[in-house]
Design a protein around this nucleic acid. Structure first.
Lengths: 210, 210
DNA sequence: CGGACGTTTAACAAAATTGTTAAACAAAAA
DNA sequence: TTTTTGTTTAACAATTTTGTTAAACGTCCG
């Protein structure tokens, strides 16, 4: 395996990722992918055999990257709140960089549910397991209301990911530019954190003149 | 326009909705839609001219239904909390009945962003506007932390809709049957409510023996 | 030099769909 | 009974896309 071989294969994947994950152009054809990568269409088949296998590869790598990123954060030695803060930061930043990645994942799996069962049969990944103990401890100490780790995690992921999935809709409804929407997403980081932990602003001390 | 004409047109739409919204079979061809409706494929073109226009119609009607359902709830004379409770109930129940509707909406719009701008240019619909006043009043009374109506609404919608969009993923990861996942969704109703409103369980009164 | 390898070119097979059309049929409406 | 209308049938054009193949080209490396 020469260096060009690896380089070109990687180049094709990278440009495909830009089309799919960044531009949200999910129906890009092999021809369009090849053009974007500046190579011949035949090369795509040379390296990936078929469009479907290229998609498989992209999905697999995306899921793996995500899994390891989450795992790295949630199985660190941080406190629960620190973990969640790190998770939100990482997820939102990644989501801002690749606004259509979640869309790609969900679309691909909706099209072929087998792809997620296959992935899960190889990589067991239940993020909620990684925070279960800490979460239950917080609940025991009444810092948090009783909630299953699964529901807690779904809350967290939903609050982070939905605005990415619905970007075209929300942006249009709220009449936002790309910049404004990016800002909206950044502002969400703190909102998600305090929503998840049901943190209330400290009571203001009532003054005399009121 | 005879009664059969209306009936058949409706029949085609209904069966297409089952394929798209219930089964999540987003790549159903005109032939498959016709088969499902028990009519000839030519009839689909007879009524809708093209597959694309059928999709347009389905999306438009879905968006309109959703808009009116939301509007009915959020512009009622209920209190804010009652409105949100009703919204959660309605959204989740509808989502359980049509698990892939959100997916259809998001996919169609991702494919053709023009479709949502067109819709919004006709039907102005900003759900957050319908609760803005009440929300700000709650904030003023310190029953709620400061939050923009937009962010509040996105939180709410995210918590309701994401588990529908990610159903195949979450169900697989958590190894759930359809029934178990339905139960999971039903349980979320209360969780979403208390998360949104940052409601904490009442402090338990400490007993002597501890 | 000469071969291996990455790459391009071009042409083609094959399939899948879509959209169109004309003719025929059946049943309701005039 | 005509006429209209909804519907089916079947065949077809056209397009799009995919995947395959064989031949040729250039270059790096042995």
């Amino acid at each position: 395996m020469s260096s060009e071989e690896v380089k070109t294969e990687k180049l094709i994947k990278e440009q495909a990722k830009i089309l799919f994950f960044k531009n949200g152009y999910l129906k890009a054809t092999t021809q369009e992918i090849a053009d974007k990568a500046g190579v011949n269409r035949a090369l795509i088949h040379y390296y990936f055999r078929s469009r479907e296998q290229l998609l498989d590869t992209l999905l697999d790598e995306a899921l793996l990257e995500k899994k390891e990123r989450v795992k790295r954060i949630l199985s660190s030695d941080l406190s629960l709140k620190e973990k969640i803060a790190a998770f939100i930061n990482s997820t939102m930043d990644y989501g801002i960089a690749f606004p259509y990645l979640e869309n790609f994942i969900i679309s691909e799996i909706a099209r072929c549910p087998k792809k997620i069962t296959d992935f899960c049969s190889v990589h067991s990944v239940k993020p909620s397991d990684l925070i279960k103990d800490q979460l239950e401890e917080e609940i025991r100490q009444k810092n948090l209301d009783p909630i299953s780790a699964e529901q807690f995690m779904v809350n967290l992921i939903a609050l982070c990911n939905y605005p990415l999935l619905a970007k075209p809709i929300l942006q249009t409804i709220h009449n936002m530019t790309d910049e404004a929407y990016g800002q909206f997403l950044v502002e969400r980081k703190q909102i998600i954190f305090s929503t998840i932990f049901k943190e209330r602003m400290p009571e203001t001390i009532p003054t005399k003149n009121e």
